[in-house]
Design a protein around this nucleic acid. Structure first.
Lengths: 152, 152
DNA sequence: CCTTACACTTGACAATGTAAAAACAACACG
DNA sequence: CGTGTTGTTTTTACATTGTCAAGTGTAAGG
């Protein structure tokens, strides 16, 4: 992850290549995973390049609009961002909350269509899988008992 | 939607039948649609039965845990609740933000499985469809221009 | 009725996201 | 290589959403 390559990627996407954008984009690509804005602010401060919270909000918004980042749909609450190249979905553990990427069967978007009869133009369909991760299923993190889930 | 029926539904689900729980449950069933907690607080105040914000948080949490309500996955931000009986997904308009129910092809949960090779026990899969609703596609609400969506 | 466990309320607080204006920097151009 | 324009970053203040803890109230079984 060279500075020059980040610069080029930003310019190619029609954005000005600023130090702050390179820092956020590079961090998300190098660290991988899913990160909230405040998460990124903390990581950047640790790495010796502190950015204001507002700047990180601006940067992730701009980079997401340009397609360089994507917002991970993991339910209500804080927004998570990641730098993956390929479209995929997410598994969220009900017990520990860990987020695990799930490959998408189709490589093109949208990977699912709405049933016929609805006059909706879908350009993207993101799936949230919920359940227990291997560790929690093994009883490693019995933080919350969720017996009596009575969903139909 | 009789008071007695609400009372019975609550008791059947193992919950105490309080005025507040009946009010929230009845409102969501009668009004339909997807509502945030503050939304509900406002509607209840208008209807002459004001409840504290904390109470509404507690009630929707209890009723969701009992399976009487479900949380609608519509992306990061505020949580939305609804009283639908059948499992379904949601379409979210990128322009106006309207949420439209989308029937689920399978009636049993989970309606989607993760690809093989991942050791995950999925009990639920919820899909978020994004795109433009008919009104916005017709140019009725051109609030945001989102040209140059460059997702891979 | 009366008791008791559970629910509701209140007030303060934490976390997350947004708005507006001034200081600053990228980069196209000469 | 300077320089001006335009977009970016920063700061400060604030709005929204959700949580915690302690005290009061009430549903429901005996």
């Amino acid at each position: 992850m060279q500075t020059d390559e980040l610069h080029t990627r930003l310019r190619e996407s029609g954005l000005r290549a600023t130090r702050q954008r390179s820092a956020v984009f590079g961090l998300l690509r190098d660290a991988g995973g899913h990160h909230s804005v405040d998460d990124l602010v903390g990581l950047l401060a640790e790495s010796g390049d502190p950015l204001s919270r507002m700047t990180v909000y601006n940067v992730v918004s701009d980079l997401t609009g340009a397609g360089l980042l994507m917002q991970a749909d993991v339910g209500p609450g804080r927004a998570l961002y990641e730098a993956s190249e390929t479209w995929h979905h997410h598994f969220v553990c009900r017990s520990c909350g860990i987020v695990i990427d799930v490959p998408c069967a189709r490589s093109t978007k949208p990977c699912l269509e709405t049933p016929p009869g609805l006059d909706l133009s879908v350009d993207e369909a993101q799936v949230i899988y919920r359940g227990l991760c291997p560790a929690c299923r093994a009883g490693a993190h019995p933080l919350e008992e969720r017996s009596s889930e009575r969903h139909t």
